[in-house]
Amino acid sequence: MRRALPGLVVAIALLALWQTWVVAFDIPVYLVPSPLTVARTLVADAALLGRALWVTVQVTLLALAAAVLLGVAIAFAFVQSRWIEAALFPYVVLLQVTPIVAIAPLIIIWVQNPTLSLVICATIVALFPIIANTTLGLRSVDAGLADYFRLQRASRWQTLWRLRVPGALPYFFGGLRIASGLALIGAVVAEFVAGTGGTGTGLAYQILQAGYQLNIARMFAALTLIALTGVLLFVATDLVTRWALGGWHESERVGR
């Protein structure tokens, strides 16, 4: 609570400033709506925006889950064999550096199911940090402990499960934190692209529609929901990380 307080103070101050500015200078609502107008719109359009939010959240969570499963599997394959890594890593990088807006139209054409196509796009965006961090983590084994496992004649499986995997957890969760934000970005961006094709009813689609109708207050309302979703995702990832690493890892120790 104490840590949240400074942020809360700034938020209230900014909102108050915004409200005063809009009222004092009589800014038209089709340019910048006041925070109170946005709040009223949120309540008035609750049903519409709630449905849209649910669609976006679904796509985001499915994409994040897919990115975690795929990313971890690929990372495991990479550390099992340098050959596999050398063969596949360039393509992982290729996937990472190609802008999703450029690939999304193709995927949306190829994949019939609109939700699935959005999930695929968001997964591609969220995948890289999971692969990169988990691979690094699985490789960053304490040399002394590795020697110890060798001395005890630990099997390959025991070394993986008891040494590499626990050692990789802090790296993995670092990747997860980045990936959770990217999954949301991927979901929204893909839906923007798909939205022009007339499919999807997520928050991005609502923003597009509201834009066409110059319903700027609803745009802001949808934007607020996306931002809040991102914050909630971040907090949730943080909680999971703390639960998993609680106690033993340095990063979870300072100031808690």
Binding site: D142, G144, L145, D147, Y148, L151, P166, G167, W248, H249
Partner: peptide
């Protein structure tokens, strides 16, 4: 039966 003790404690921090 060999027991080995390293320069560092080399304990698993997660256990």
């Amino acid at each position: 039966r060999i027991g080995f003790v390293f320069q560092q404690a080399t304990l698993m921090p997660w256990a």
